[in-house]
Amino acid sequence: MAPNSELSDSDGALGSPGEEGLPVLPITWRPTRTRVIVFAVAVLMAGSMGLVAALLPSDGGAPWPLPDRIAFGGIGLAGAAVLLVLARPKVVADRGGLTVVNMLRTHRLEWPQIVRVNLRPGDPWVLLDLDSGDSLAAMGIQPSNGAGTARQAVADLRSLVELYSYTGRGD
């Protein structure tokens, strides 16, 4: 079935993204509060370590050599880079499927591969049950943005999975 065609459910109702409460594609979910905090801490870390490296004494009774001061500033930049990995997660839905970008890996899923979208109370992020029997963390949808926002994102994702996972084979 073509991904941009309208589907008819058992009640005969038609649906396509942008209609009847379905989200307009493409749509991206990101944990914005987490990203703001991570960016702020990364800038603070790199800036403070750079400032300390610049203010370390280069002469006197206990001098810090230039390579040591550069290394001190570099540690701040490396720490900021590690923190920025925490800001990477996102989930992007388009007509072809779902792209799940977690901290270190990116997964591309076709809609029929997704069996269920789960966000139980206490879960740190959405878990996707896949047709292979595996689960995949979708870290881009988190309750850290607010429980209502997470519930809406899960409802939108579930409706898209339901719409696009239709195969026409009666399953």
Rank of each mutant, 00 (worst) to 15 (best):
L127G: 09
V115A: 07
P124R: 12
V117D: 00
M49F: 15
G122C: 09
A80Y: 05
V115Q: 06
V100Y: 08
F72H: 10
V38I: 14
P112D: 04
N118H: 12
A147E: 13
P124M: 05
G47L: 06
V85Q: 14
I114R: 01
H107R: 14
W111E: 01
T106S: 11
L77P: 04
G74T: 03
L127H: 13
L77R: 05
V38N: 05
Q113S: 07
L119S: 02
I75R: 06
R88C: 10
A80P: 04
W64M: 11
M103W: 14
N118F: 06
R95K: 11
P121L: 14
P121W: 11
R105H: 13
L83H: 07
L128Q: 00
L104Q: 05
L136V: 03
G122R: 10
G96Y: 13
N145H: 02
P89R: 05
G133Q: 06
H107Y: 13
L127S: 14
L136N: 02
R105A: 11
P57S: 01
Q113M: 07
L77C: 13
R30N: 01
G50N: 03
V41F: 10
L84W: 02
D131I: 09
S132Q: 08
V52T: 15
A81Q: 07
L119G: 01
I37C: 09
